[in-house]
Simulated scan of single mutants.
Amino acid sequence: MRALIIDDSKTMRVILRRILTDLGFEVAEAGDGQQALTVMETGPLPELCLIDWNMPVMDGYTFVTRVRDVPEWRDVTLMMVTTESSHGNIVRALAAGAHEYVIKPFTPDAIQEKLELLGLVKDGAAA
């Protein structure tokens, strides 16, 4: 199963990559939403995107709305992983098409639990 990590923090991408590879995902990375759209247009389509909200060039919310505008990308699971913790932004992201929302800081178990709820991880491994 393929995942795309979208975060302007290299450190955060390393942390998320470790969590996802330990769960059996193949991982690609992008530093902002615009780079992520390019990855999705040119590479194999990921089944999962982990998305930060606050990034330069294109933020995570805009990325979510752009992905949801492309019918061929309808089945990609989108999970926000961000410091944006206001109730309004959580509701906004979910209404725009995100499936889950994780607030930083998080534990590896929190990411795994969300992926299990989404049916992407079963018994500690990518489904």
Results as ranks from 00 to 15, higher is better:
108 P>R: 09
49 C>V: 15
12 M>I: 13
81 V>D: 00
45 L>R: 15
52 D>E: 10
77 T>Y: 07
6 I>H: 00
12 M>R: 06
45 L>P: 02
13 R>V: 03
51 I>C: 05
40 M>V: 14
48 L>Q: 00
65 T>V: 13
37 L>P: 01
105 P>Q: 11
69 D>W: 03
120 L>K: 04
46 P>G: 05
83 T>K: 09
26 E>A: 13
32 D>N: 15
77 T>C: 13
29 E>R: 09
107 T>Q: 11
54 N>D: 14
101 Y>R: 01
53 W>R: 06
86 S>N: 10
36 A>P: 01
93 A>E: 01
48 L>T: 01
101 Y>C: 02
2 R>S: 13
13 R>T: 04
93 A>M: 05
102 V>W: 02
71 P>E: 13
61 Y>C: 01
28 A>N: 10
97 G>D: 06
105 P>F: 12
39 V>C: 12
88 G>I: 07
88 G>T: 10
11 T>S: 12
55 M>L: 08
32 D>E: 04
48 L>C: 02
58 M>L: 12
65 T>E: 15
37 L>Q: 07
115 L>V: 08
47 E>K: 13
21 T>S: 10
89 N>W: 08
49 C>P: 00
41 E>A: 14
111 I>D: 00
17 R>I: 01
61 Y>I: 00
96 A>S: 11
97 G>A: 09
51 I>E: 00
118 L>F: 08
70 V>Q: 15
88 G>H: 09
120 L>V: 06
118 L>E: 10
115 L>S: 04
19 I>T: 08
40 M>L: 14
55 M>E: 02
106 F>N: 03
44 P>T: 11
12 M>K: 07
50 L>E: 02
88 G>W: 07
41 E>W: 05
107 T>L: 09
19 I>S: 00
10 K>M: 09
82 T>K: 03
73 W>H: 11
55 M>F: 06
111 I>H: 04
29 E>S: 10
118 L>K: 09
113 E>G: 08
8 D>A: 04
2 R>P: 00
118 L>W: 03
22 D>Q: 13
85 S>L: 05
123 D>E: 14
111 I>C: 05
109 D>K: 14
52 D>A: 05
22 D>V: 02
36 A>G: 15
98 A>G: 03
10 K>L: 13
119 G>V: 09
74 R>Y: 08
99 H>G: 05
101 Y>V: 03
94 L>S: 03
11 T>I: 14
60 G>D: 04
113 E>F: 11
30 A>Q: 06
94 L>Y: 07
84 E>S: 14
124 G>Y: 08
31 G>W: 04
19 I>D: 02
